[in-house]
């Protein structure tokens, strides 16, 4: 059994140390080679199951080079990087798949307060558990300050 990480995990590589820019580029290059459409998204509502984040730019369908996606990642970091999560997604539009094929976090806020386990007692003393992010105790825009 591994120890649960203190920080939010979601998508690929999130149990690893943060990816370097070169590693991110290599992943993007792989996605482009596979013909996926890449997009950049950000959020300050961290939850492992929160998959619908804000779109940073339009999805990039016909970029040929990782530098183009890195351009958007860096722009997004400049605007939201200090207190938001940013992820890169790769959408595979080939028949029968038609879904997100890759998703990995490329930016985390400087300080992550972490997640708590909250218990709710249900009928017949049943116990339900939920994951709660300390950050979401504050309203949007005031988190991670």
């Amino acid at each position: 059994m591994h120890e649960n990480p203190r920080n939010m995990t979601q998508g690929q590589f999130s149990f690893l140390p943060p990816l370097t820019d070169d590693q991110i580029k290599a992943q993007i290059a792989y996605a482009i080679k596979k013909g996926f459409a890449l997009s950049v998204e950000y959020t300050d509502d961290p939850h492992p199951r929160n998959t619908y984040w804000e779109m940073w730019c339009q999805p990039m369908f016909d970029t040929k080079d990782p530098a183009a996606v890195m351009l958007e990642v860096n722009e997004c970091r400049k605007t939201w990087g200090a207190n938001h999560y940013i992820k890169v997604q790769a959408f595979d539009n080939s028949r029968w798949r038609e879904s997100v094929a890759m998703s990995f976090i490329v930016n985390r806020p400087k300080h992550e307060p972490g997640l708590a386990l909250a218990r709710t007692e249900g009928p017949g003393r049943t116990m339900q558990y939920r994951v709660h992010s300390y950050a979401t105790d504050k309203p949007r825009g005031e988190r991670y300050k």
């Binding site: 730019c57 339009q58 970029t63 080079d65 990782p66 183009a68 996606v69």
Partner: peptide, 12 residues
């Protein structure tokens, strides 16, 4: 955005 879109396509 239009110009950036074109630039992104041309990158590389």
């Amino acid at each position: 955005p239009k110009t950036r879109e074109v630039i992104k396509k041309a990158m590389g």
